[in-house]
Amino acid sequence: MKHPEDPSGVSRRGFLKGASLGVAASTVLGSARAEVKEASGVPDARLLKAADEHEISFVLNGEKTKAKVRTGHTLLETLRDQLDKTGTKLVCDFGTCGACTVLVDGKPVNSCLTLAVDVAGHQVETIEGMEQNGKLHPIQEAFCAEDGLQCGFCTPGMVMSSKALLDANPKPSLDETKAALSGNLCRCGTYINIFRAVERASKGK
């Protein structure tokens, strides 16, 4: 099963518990993180209120990026509404479907469950950052070649989860692939071709 860790080293389940207490989620941040965040625009996480506005900076697809966010804003809405990175999709709004998966410091997270202030000072990678020098990433190539997509709405999340998998485990077994993608849902039924795409990309590496 996929239990992506949030950038602070808190598991998704732990994060959910924290999130249910509102701002208390931020209090679990370690002191080292707080220092980084101070430098990146957010003062002391323990003192935040939901409506507070912050100017945060983080690295988005390799570029230093600033955003004005409230404490309650999710990373997903910040990406989509403010930074026009609409490749990342909102589907379940619940952490169930994985369509909003992005990589934070290389690890897959559900951006609908991640507060924007929590990525201050961190590396965020979205589907728009996968291409390098105008060339598709091998995983993107493989999704095209194996037809790992129909309507395409789950595709960005699937590609990001696949990247996280192959970065950590370049030669996954079919069961490992299924486990790594188990947080991503597709309604058109493209799973079989997605497994083939992951296999193709892993062989190309």
Binding site: T86, G87, K89, L136, F143, C144, D147, L149, G152
Partner: peptide, 21 residues
């Protein structure tokens, strides 16, 4: 045949109604 619009979908460039701003 690869879908002619596959690249738009794997790069996030495909604009759905949901994405319009």
């Amino acid at each position: 045949h690869q879908k002619v619009d596959a690249v738009f979908k794997v790069t996030g460039q495909a604009k759905y109604t949901h994405d319009l701003n």
